[in-house]
């Protein structure tokens, strides 16, 4: 029964989701929203599982006999956990904790947001290093990519049209860049999207019919 009941639920919910796409009449049209709400409720309760697991793992690392850097990181995570929890729950005006000016909001705006932005900003540097590697002309595919990238990047900058201003209209770099982005790029992306859509349909059918049950453990 450990696998049969979840498989039956997956079948029932999956079929309803397909039916509601084609039958807008009540109750089908509204059932998906109901299922979505249920998922939200289950996921909300499950957050505690994750939060307590994070605390457990961090404390275990902090008080581990192994003298690694992890113990300090674990300590920082556990201390941050308690700090934000206590301030949010007891020192920020109850359910008004998100109101601008509250202590919780102060921590959010001045610690969380800059840290998150810093991580996002790192992406710029990673894009540069990844581009350098991708554009090295080691194979004919990479060479093709390099040429396309050269035209697109130059075409998207003002200097592109300044360099090719003498060319007839339709052959300037900005127009070549637009052509690459509108036709070969879109065609490639659509091919991938069609494959993904069919892959999703096939995977969903396997899940609904219970052919694919490895997500339940085993098989």
């Amino acid at each position: 029964m450990r696998r049969e009941i979840p498989t039956a639920i997956a079948f029932f919910v999956g079929i309803i989701c397909i039916i509601q796409f084609f039958i807008p009449h009540r109750p089908f049209g509204t059932l998906v929203d109901v299922f979505s709400d249920w998922f939200g409720i289950v996921a909300a309760f499950a957050i505690w599982l994750g939060a307590l697991n994070l605390l457990k793992v961090s404390l275990e690392r902090s008080f581990s006999k192994k003298k690694t850097h992890d113990r300090w990181y674990g300590l920082v995570v556990a201390a941050s956990f308690f700090l934000i929890f206590i301030i949010g729950m007891f020192m920020s005006g109850g359910d008004q904790f998100q109101v601008p000016g509250s202590r919780f909001d102060y921590l959010y705006v001045n610690i969380y947001t800059p840290l998150s932005s810093t991580m996002f900003a790192l992406l710029a540097f990673f894009v540069a290093s990844a581009s350098y590697r991708a554009f090295r002309a080691r194979s004919w595919e990479a060479t093709l990519l390099l040429i396309a990238a050269f035209f697109v990047m130059l075409g998207r900058a003002p200097i592109g049209d300044q360099l090719t201003g003498f060319m007839p209209e339709g052959y300037r770099l900005s127009e070549v860049a637009n052509w690459i982005m509108t036709y070969p790029q879109v065609a490639g992306q659509r091919a991938i999207m069609i494959g993904i859509a069919l892959g999703v349909a096939s995977a969903s059918l396997r899940l609904i019919l219970g052919l694919e049950r490895s997500y339940l453990g085993g098989e």
Partner: peptide, 16 residues
């Protein structure tokens, strides 16, 4: 660009 092997789109769903 960054990985040795990449499963592109549908290959991810075909993996199982």
């Amino acid at each position: 660009a960054a990985c040795d092997y990449t499963l592109i789109g549908e290959e991810l769903f075909a993996a199982s």
